[in-house]
Design a protein around this nucleic acid. Sequence first.
DNA 1: AGAAAGTTTCCGATATACGGAATAAATGGG
DNA 2: CCCATTTATTCCGTATATCGGAAACTTTCT
Lengths: 273, 273
Amino acid sequence: MTTDDAGAKSSLQRGIAILRMLADSNESGARLTDIARDLNLTPPTVHRILKTLVEEGMVEADKSTKRYRLGIDLFTMAARAGNPNNLRDICRPIMLRLSATLRDTIFLLVRSGFDAVCLDRSEGPFPIRSFTGDIGGRVTLGVGQGSLAILAFLPDEEREEVIRFNLPRMQGVGILDEVYLRTEIARVRDLGYASRSTGLLPGMSGVAVPVLDREGHAVAALSVGTITERLNEERLPVVVDILKREAAGVCRQLNPFDPVLRRPAAVLGSGAS
Amino acid sequence: MTTDDAGAKSSLQRGIAILRMLADSNESGARLTDIARDLNLTPPTVHRILKTLVEEGMVEADKSTKRYRLGIDLFTMAARAGNPNNLRDICRPIMLRLSATLRDTIFLLVRSGFDAVCLDRSEGPFPIRSFTGDIGGRVTLGVGQGSLAILAFLPDEEREEVIRFNLPRMQGVGILDEVYLRTEIARVRDLGYASRSTGLLPGMSGVAVPVLDREGHAVAALSVGTITERLNEERLPVVVDILKREAAGVCRQLNPFDPVLRRPAAVLGSGAS
DNA sequence: AGAAAGTTTCCGATATACGGAATAAATGGG
DNA sequence: CCCATTTATTCCGTATATCGGAAACTTTCT
């Protein structure tokens, strides 16, 4: 039983597996038969599950091409997911302020397992490339400044675990070897920010600061992505300073209980409904 | 059997129902018992389904508070949804260009049932409020300029259906009555854009143009949201002109078969794997 | 500390999902 | 244009995975 297809049993699991598959083949969508083949399911089974998923609005079926893709309902759900501790809501105005002030693109990253995930992004006027790409994008934890800033400020054991797991995944993405990575991490911990240009995205640079919890461990990173010229010796310290200040502000809001007031600080709720 | 809880049977449907519920109570997450109560399920059932969802990474359980919320895996997966015909990918660079050029916030809306959904957004330097709010946000189809631009250019029967369904939902959001709405729609069809300030968001205005398919029906809307001063008589026509040009460009890219070449135009696939 | 509410495990009955086989629809080739 | 082939969909008997009552266990509240 542990040999070939170790797992997928319940219809719920199969349904999720199908959603996963659709997420990966999203450009054009996937056909029923392909799904059945890839997931080792029979066409009737896939058909029935897809029917349910379509009825529930999680999947859309293109009647003409018979291709299935993830539905907009699911997209709407994503907007409400990935908001741990209201992090995204808290950071939104800050990111707007930052991108308006700095005139660069701001990213909010959080850790997810051995990856960093882009939770939000606020565009500046300069077109840029980043490792995580769009909102929802993932990158190996440690690759890229934001990602590195998180890794550097993880609790010791967790950091070691991630390093062990991720080193093999980092081949060819700028991490030369373990020594190099550890040197970088030490540097970031020392400076309080990550800024080295990796040279992997030509002309692009970034600088990131961790968002820390009260134990001093990273829960997220605020990151600026821009063209290399815009992070010169003159500008870098200014940007770092601003970022650090904002990160500290986020940290304060993340700890909802004000030590003085002994109650949740400054509730938002200005909007209706 | 058709009386009270007409529906939810399969574990897949129950699983999705739970995800839906978690999406609605996402600030703080939901507890097992609450879910069971709201969905008319027994605690053991909810427990088992949640366990599966957690194993699959769709849901995260806060061990300490025993609260469940949507997981980041779902966030990542769902971020890849809502990209019909590559619309989002196609529009991304255009939106960046627009927000950089106009220095205002750009929205990309698509229809989803009787709502418009914000597929993407590119921030300008002016802080603004909008009906759809963030990416993934929904608004009644017809409320707001982008939403109205889509409604106005829907196929006749569909438009009627939406109007019939949505009129009751529009009370108190600026739509006075059916006559007013129909007048507005006619206006939008005539001008080719939607721009009236609704006065619902004080100081805010917007202008939107539909993205049409080759039958002339709306598949989406490109919308500019800004402060009212910035859409004065002088600037409005310029903005409309730019928007229309970009929308036409999107339209061209949406129809992948070039009428001359008779083959898919400009395939992307620059990346590996 | 005791009570109440919530969570998790267990297990037998049964409802639900599975997939083979057959049918229908679409695709493609001659 | 028709026939062969692939793909999608329906049907239904079987078997298995799901359900929920009961109970053990944990946490929260008073």
